[in-house]
Design a protein around this nucleic acid. Sequence first.
DNA 1: CCCTGATTCGC
DNA 2: GCGAATCAGG
Length: 153
Amino acid sequence: MSWTDERIDQLKAMWEKGLTASQIAEELGGVSRNAVIGKAHRLGLQSRPSPVKANEAPKKAAPVRKPAPVAETEAPKPAPIQHSTPAPVRHPAPVTVAAISPSASAPAADAPPPAPQPRIISVGPGGFLRQGPNRNDARVRGGGRGISCGSGG
DNA sequence: CCCTGATTCGC
DNA sequence: GCGAATCAGG
């Protein structure tokens, strides 16, 4: 599974939304949360703009305090606008990822919809395709951090 | 215990 | 460049 521009865009889109790597990975499919995070790094999305979670915070805007030092003393002005979008776009169902998909609806006109095909495209008679010949016991890989192997046995 | 992102290493 | 392994925090 290669990271096509489509997926990359999705990744960024969801990442910005605050979706968790797992969510993004699930939506994209074929990739694991690790891959999403890893890709995010290469894209430059090291840290998201807000530590909020997509399933508990995105419903409300951030409590941005106006720089006005002496205005909120008596005129709070709760809703001077919003006439265009008065009702809060509260979705009863979980955030529809497809909604943020730039191509999910556009090409849907003539392009074939995302068939419910499984992650596994095709596997040989041997079984699943191993990416690494030694992935099984390849624990030797330090991974993580601070694993400084002592010089002595 | 589970999920979370971040980091690092091998291919 | 990708992805898994793995760490570290809540």
